[in-house]
């Protein structure tokens, strides 16, 4: 039906695309909007009035701080664990050849492909089978399973682009393994690790499903929000916290995007 191939997309398609994007993002704006409403029990539109008092209320709620603190600690430690294990695993898979290498690569990636609920149930039954009490560390373990994948995926791609002769050249010039890692490997994979770490942090920070199965009495921030939704008291506090969560997870993801985009010319071979 089109008479000219060079014209832009038809108006109908443009509208459909716009509606699709609006459907994705408007609800987030609504969350922000209701952080400022004066009505605290229900979400009526438009809000009857606007106020900043919920920020102060949130600031003074100890349960928010507790949940936030727990989430930050869990995300930090899971990311740290993931950085170490993910880097080591990526180095092994990309630098050496050994029996079962492809299998290991698949097994490392599998946890992120599995539904979170499977990972959660599996970990929960494993913990109770081994009679490990639920604690801060069981949450960290649960989160580390998918954080490792993110770091590994970022690092393995970069490792493959660091030419093997660079490492040999470093050893040849007198650097031992540690110096070679510090002066040659780390500068070349550093941005990939940072990006992977940021993504891992963001993933861990808003994780609900695995946490539900691996946490004991503690609540991470997302769990706290879930609990908060069922009781209609000071509802906008939840919205204020949601805004903070969006910022805390969105900024690292944005950072990771820019870091991996610019990292392309860093790791080429010497040629």
């Amino acid at each position: 039906m089109r008479s000219d191939r060079n014209t832009s997309a038809p108006l109908g398609l443009k509208i459909a695309a716009g509606l699709g994007l609006a459907f994705l993002h408007l609800p987030i704006l609504l969350i922000f909007l209701y952080a400022f409403t004066t009505e605290e029990k229900s979400y009526q539109f438009p809000p009857p009035g606007y106020t900043l008092k919920w920020f102060a209320v949130t600031w003074n709620r100890p349960d928010v701080w507790e949940a936030m603190g727990l989430s930050v600690r869990v995300a930090s430690i899971s990311t740290a664990v993931a950085l170490v294990l993910g880097t080591l695993c990526a180095a092994a898979v990309s630098r050496t050849k050994f029996f079962g290498r492809e299998t290991i690569s698949l097994l490392v990636i599998l946890p992120i492909a599995l539904p979170g609920i499977i990972t959660g149930i599996a970990l929960r039954s494993a913990f109770s089978f081994a009679e490990i009490p639920f604690s801060f560390w069981t949450i960290v373990l649960g989160h580390a399973t998918f954080c490792v994948v993110v770091v590994y995926n970022n690092a393995v791609a970069r490792f493959r682009r660091v030419s093997g002769s660079l490492i040999e050249a470093s050893m040849d010039l007198g650097a031992d393994s540690f110096q070679t890692f510090r002066y040659v490997i780390l500068p070349n994979i550093g941005t990939a690790l940072l990006a992977g770490g940021m993504l891992a942090f963001a993933l861990s920070f808003d994780e609900v499903i695995v946490t539900t199965f691996t946490a004991g009495q503690q609540s991470t921030l997302p769990i706290w929000m879930l609990e908060e939704l069922v009781r209609p008291r000071q509802r906008p506090v939840t919205n204020v916290v949601a805004m903070v969560v969006v910022l805390v997870t969105f900024l690292p993801i944005l950072g990771a995007y820019y870091l991996t985009r610019d990292g392309d010319q860093v790791a080429g071979a010497g040629k």
Partner: peptide
């Protein structure tokens, strides 16, 4: 060693 691909450190 002088490597065939020179192996200069790109960073």
């Amino acid at each position: 060693t002088v490597f065939q691909d020179y192996a200069l450190f790109p960073h």
